[in-house]
């Protein structure tokens, strides 16, 4: 019976560790150490603020961030006034007003980030035929998550001699290697407010960190809840185990 149980156990564990989908021709990603990894992982607010800066100065020229509202930036450590100020830098379309006209006004905390292009066709036509994808969920929508984003942003290199890249770029980590996005980061693309040196690696780390938050804003609450639930469950299970032992003690 023990043997059968352990057999079933091994098998069910085996099921879980099976890679459920094809890895394809992906190159091994450069695994980074993230503060949000691990049992007690949390986001690094300074890194997210820097990453947000990179998003604003670089990514947002082409990429939308549809699911994020300015008010969500409290998670990055900004206070209400700072968020109002950030939102006010943007112009959003509102309306129709009482005359039936659409009008433009300064953004407020409840607005979402305005997209750089009015629609997908416009985005595609301005970017060589391929619309830049929305970044809200990017850190969950690719195999490898933030490691993949970091890899992609730092993985541009010269194509091997036998590959004709045309008007595309060559990227070590992009599936198929030929990517429409030209290298976005060159170093010192932004001037960090906190004095951190804006190397390509630093910016890639920060913006990946920021995008992980954008994709999974409840990660900290999730892990903290998990620790509490786990403590409860372990105590509950131990009590049940003791009760079961006691109930069965007299059974022969």
């Amino acid at each position: 019976m023990k043997k059968i149980l352990s057999g079933f156990f091994a098998v069910s564990l085996g099921c879980l560790s099976l890679p459920a989908f094809a890895a394809g021709d992906a190159v091994e990603l450069p695994e980074q150490e993230w503060s949000f990894d691990g049992v007690f992982g949390t986001y690094d607010k300074a890194s997210m603020q820097r990453g947000f800066q990179v998003y604003q100065k670089v990514c947002s020229a082409c990429h939308s961030l549809d699911l994020i509202a300015f008010r969500n930036l409290t998670d990055l450590g900004y206070n209400e006034d700072e968020i109002k100020a950030i939102a006010a830098e943007y112009t959003v379309e509102d309306g129709p007003n009482d005359e039936g006209e659409m009008f433009e006004r300064a953004g407020s905390a409840s607005d979402r980030f305005p997209a750089p292009f009015p629609n997908e066709k416009a985005a595609a036509s301005a970017n060589g035929g391929k619309a830049p994808p929305d970044l809200s969920l990017m850190a969950k929508a690719r195999v490898g998550g933030p490691d993949y984003l970091y890899g992609l942003l730092t993985g541009y290199e010269d194509a091997p001699a036998d590959i004709d890249v045309g008007n595309l770029s060559y990227n070590k980590y992009f599936p198929g290697h030929l990517i429409s996005m030209s290298p976005p980061l060159f170093g010192d693309d932004v001037e960090y407010g906190d004095g951190t040196e804006a190397t390509v690696e630093q910016m890639a780390t920060d913006v990946s960190h920021f995008l992980m938050w954008a994709a999974e804003p409840k990660l900290e609450a999730r892990k903290q809840t998990g620790v509490k639930v786990m403590i409860f469950l372990i105590i509950f299970t131990l009590i049940m185990y003791a009760a079961k032992r006691k109930a069965f003690a007299k059974v022969h």
């Binding site: 459920a20 049992v39 690719r142 195999v143 998550g145 999730r222 892990k223 998990g226 620790v227 639930v229």
Partner: peptide, 10 residues
């Protein structure tokens, strides 16, 4: 709590 998307597909 620690790998909610592990069994899903990106």
């Amino acid at each position: 709590f620690w790998a909610p998307n592990y069994m899903g597909h990106p």
